[in-house]
Design a protein around this nucleic acid. Sequence first.
DNA 1: TTTTATTTTCATTTTTTTTTGAAAGTTTAA
DNA 2: TTAAACTTTCAAAAAAAAATGAAAATAAAA
Lengths: 168, 168
Amino acid sequence: MELAEARLKFIEAWGKLGSEWGINRTMAQVHALLMISPEALTTEEIMNELSISRGNANMTLRDLIDWGLVEKQHKTGERKEYFYAEKDVWIIARRVAEERKKRELTPIIKILDQLTEVKGDENDPAFKTFKTSITDINKLAGNVNKTLDTMLKAEENWFFGSILKVFK
Amino acid sequence: MELAEARLKFIEAWGKLGSEWGINRTMAQVHALLMISPEALTTEEIMNELSISRGNANMTLRDLIDWGLVEKQHKTGERKEYFYAEKDVWIIARRVAEERKKRELTPIIKILDQLTEVKGDENDPAFKTFKTSITDINKLAGNVNKTLDTMLKAEENWFFGSILKVFK
DNA sequence: TTTTATTTTCATTTTTTTTTGAAAGTTTAA
DNA sequence: TTAAACTTTCAAAAAAAAATGAAAATAAAA
């Protein structure tokens, strides 16, 4: 396979994967494009490569910056902005985990904590089932949380190396 | 907080979480409702509790069955079908992991493997960056895959117990 | 300053996803 | 059989999400 074809396939696949995980397809595609680009790109170049509008490119890039996956660069003597993506997959994975933890896990844990406080009749099966489910989900969420904290503190080889041996 | 209110809050929160992770909000809500229901429910009951149409309820329940999270039950002497959800959160987590692995991880690994075969000029930065990125993502995906396999074989206390101590 | 290059915003349009509901299909019982 | 009870399907409608593009805003240069 030629580079040009492979690049398009990767961008498409990354976009699809993103959309399956609740991430805007275009955002995932812009990320894919920047990940495989050795140099920082301008908004114009991104628009052309992916056939998207200026507005879309602008908003998507802002989101990617918010996620900590892309940074703005300025070239001396040049007026326009360039965008460059982090390329270390371990750092990328950690950033995504960190953001999703902050945006989704923390809020749901807060709600689950409140729901644990529900009052009712211990002999009512509806009450008992509710309480057990919430308590169990809360415990699982707490463990996911702890595991993510460990992951966020860990070095790259935490995942690529030692931990896997424990499973073997 | 009263049970009725807590139930609604949980259903809402679970639906929101689902939609953030690419799972249809209604499907997550039906799942939530069944998880906190001690007894199996009829389509009719689910329609009423969540104010959804018969068609929607039917398709959503079928999907949940496909995911292995819900099962049909028949009560003797009764004609209509009842739906019951698995309540063990560890089993739920494993089923979801198993399905997403099959539906999303395996296909992307297949594509990444193909993309690793790309041919080009080793001195071309575009080629080098592409190859490095794909190779790294592929390695990470492979490790995620291995970890999930381990998780799928593991007992509940793999997650709730021992492994966490390794991190401490 | 004023002009020009560039970025950002956001009301509107387009696309995608989800839901509806009524007709068709199926199963059991009379 | 026929009818009643219940389930499934799917074209059409509605809702939600994403994208457009032109105007407004901003920033650098003349």
